[in-house]
């Protein structure tokens, strides 16, 4: 168990290295540099100035040296200055914006898991009833509609027409409602679909029939046999769900003008803010890696048949 944990944590290192290297290569393989970004509001600089700045930021050094420097600094959690917001370091920006994204993501995740499992279980228990059709309907909508489309339609319906919720911002809990639902709905749909089919499998299994046959009460069969076993496979899809909520956040933050990390990431791309891009991608990598590890550990804890060695 401990060995497995350590092994997995060690495996995270080459994965992150590969991610950093791929990102680095893609960024540098194409024309343009952070000093002459193609962003619409960029300052055109004279070649002299560019040369001086390149020297200052170490952009004139050979690429392998730059990559090495980056890695060394990243080990000390120093990702350098942001090229687009010259006075702020990448770490500062991330420290300011990541908590917002994390809060939004966590709420969306909770909403998706609680809502998805509830809907899926109810649908499976009442197969072919209206609640089952509702589940299938929500699942289809949620899986097929992109979150920014859902976001636009929600804005139009709930904040502009009905005026139930504010349209933009992140100040009060009332602001959190629509973004959370928008970001979580697609994942809720996937979880509901998965839960439904997993529970349906279990309901038809022999040991559930045995449990009923020996006269166990409905609730006991449900809690002890069906739910416990039916929810285990659901845990396996939590990893991809984290990833989807992470990237989905870019779009939802844009729709509702939320001051999270996603917006900075998107602008850093077009202005070739190398430091910011590398910082954000690595942060995502670490975050996803750890989340996947937690999911796997959880899975093993829930299902004793899983061995870690």
């Amino acid at each position: 168990m401990l060995r497995y944990l350590v092994e997995r944590l060690i495996w995270l290192v080459p994965t992150l290295l590969a991610m950093a290297l791929i990102t680095f290569i893609v960024m540098h393989a194409t024309p343009g540099s952070p000093l002459d970004p193609q962003a619409p509001n960029a300052n055109p600089l004279s070649p002299e100035l560019q040369k001086n700045l390149a020297e200052k930021y170490g952009l004139d050094k050979p690429l392998p040296v730059q990559f090495g420097t980056f890695l060394w600094n990243a080990l000390h959690f120093d990702f350098g200055f942001s090229y687009q917001f010259k006075s702020r370091t990448v770490s500062e920006i991330i420290a300011n914006t990541f908590p917002v994204s994390l809060a939004l993501g966590s709420m969306a995740f909770l909403f998706a898991v609680v809502g998805g499992v509830t809907l899926g279980v109810l649908a499976a228990m009442n197969q072919n009833s209206w609640i089952d059709y509702l589940c299938v309907f929500v699942a289809t909508l949620g899986v097929s509609l992109p979150n920014f489309v859902i976001g636009i339609l929600f804005l139009l319906l709930f904040s502009i027409t009905l005026q139930w919720f504010p349209a933009v911002g992140w100040d009060t809990p009332r602001h959190w409602v629509l973004p959370t639902i928008t970001l979580g709905l697609g994942q809720l749909a996937i979880i509901a679909r998965y839960t439904r089919s997993s529970i349906l499998d279990i309901i038809r299994s022999d040991y559930v029939r045995t449990a009923r046959a020996k006269g166990l009460s409905n609730s006991a069969v449900m809690m002890r046999h069906i739910l416990k076993n039916g929810l285990i496979p659901v845990v396996t899809i939590l990893g991809p769900i984290f990833a989807a909520i992470g990237t989905g956040s870019f779009f939802v933050e844009q729709v509702y003008s939320i001051p999270g990390m996603g917006k900075f990431f998107v602008t850093s791309m077009s202005s070739r803010d190398y430091n910011m891009i590398m910082g954000v991608i690595l942060l995502y990598g670490v975050f996803l890696g750890i989340m996947n590890l937690i999911v796997d550990l959880l899975y093993g804890w829930l299902d004793p048949r899983i061995r870690f060695d």
Partner: peptide
């Protein structure tokens, strides 16, 4: 290991 959308955004901003 790379979230697909993240990678696509990266490539697009590099290529234009």
């Amino acid at each position: 290991a790379f979230p697909t959308l993240l990678f696509v955004i990266l490539i697009m901003s590099a290529l234009g």
